[in-house]
Simulated assay, not measured.
Amino acid sequence: MERAVDVVNTMFGYSGAGLMFAEEGRDLRYLVATDERGRSLEGAQLYLGQGPCVSAYEQNSAVTSTDVHTDPRWPKLADRLHPDVRAVAGVPVRLGGEPVGTLNVYQSTAYEWDESDVQALYGYADVIEQLLMAAMAAEEKSALADQLQYALDYRVVIERAIGYLMGKHDMTATEAFTGLRKQARDSRRRVADLAAEVLGEGAGELR
């Protein structure tokens, strides 16, 4: 995300940029900014709970300001901003059509944002959405890989415990595994941990 924000300035020639993302409670939080001026913009908005970028998130649409120091919509914002933050534009960053944050850019002088600026920012916000989706998919694959590795690592222990229970209680493999899994769930433990205990203690008594 830091690299993605840095590229905004290179591509579009703005004075600075930043990203804010929402937490589970849908409150925006600072993520990354290109410089101190950008951090003052995001910090001021988060402190006051208002500003062009906050409005872009709440309205799920682009919000621009020619000069935030004189914009009557957010009269308290100027006092907390770096003096070089003047014109500001914010567009929502979405996932599945719902806003999850904002992409914010600023100019150090007053500037009239036009439709080409807004559309360019929307296009780049779409790129960030694709990055987020790729990261989420990678995380899901990693979690699945961990689960599969866990199953492989403990397969032998579980199978041995099932064999022990089958012999001790005259059960089928399905009955032994079902009972082992139920007891693990009831005691909020992992099946592999319970299987190791069954083998270690030789108890194997199912409830």
Rank of each mutant, 00 (worst) to 15 (best):
M1K: 10
R3W: 01
R3L: 12
A4W: 00
D6P: 08
V7F: 07
V8C: 08
V8T: 11
T10H: 07
S15G: 10
A17M: 04
G18D: 05
E24C: 06
G25P: 00
G25R: 06
R26L: 13
D27C: 04
D27P: 02
Y30T: 12
L31R: 15
T34C: 08
E36N: 03
R37S: 11
G38N: 09
G38H: 07
G38R: 03
L41G: 05
Q45T: 08
Y47W: 01
Y47L: 12
L48G: 05
G49K: 05
G51C: 05
S55V: 03
S55W: 02
S55Y: 03
S55M: 11
E58P: 01
V63D: 00
T64P: 01
S65A: 14
T66K: 14
T66M: 07
D71V: 06
R73L: 04
D79I: 03
A87P: 12
V88F: 04
A89V: 09
V91T: 14
P92F: 04
V93T: 01
R94E: 12
R94I: 06
E98N: 11
E98A: 15
G101Q: 05
L103G: 02
N104E: 15
N104P: 00
V105R: 05
Y106G: 03
A110K: 03
D114N: 11
S116V: 03
D117C: 12
V118N: 09
V118P: 00
A120G: 07
A120S: 15
L121W: 00
V127P: 06
Q130T: 06
Q130W: 06
L131N: 08
L132G: 04
A134F: 02
A137G: 08
K141I: 13
S142I: 07
L144V: 03
A145S: 06
A145N: 04
D146E: 11
Q147W: 12
L148D: 11
A151N: 09
A151F: 13
L152D: 13
L152R: 11
E159T: 09
A161W: 00
I162V: 15
Y164F: 15
G167Q: 14
G167W: 00
H169N: 08
H169Q: 06
T172F: 04
A173L: 07
A173M: 12
R185T: 13
R189L: 07
R190S: 15
A195I: 02
A196Y: 06
E197Q: 10
V198G: 03
G202N: 09
G202I: 05
G202H: 01
A203T: 14
E205C: 01
R207N: 14
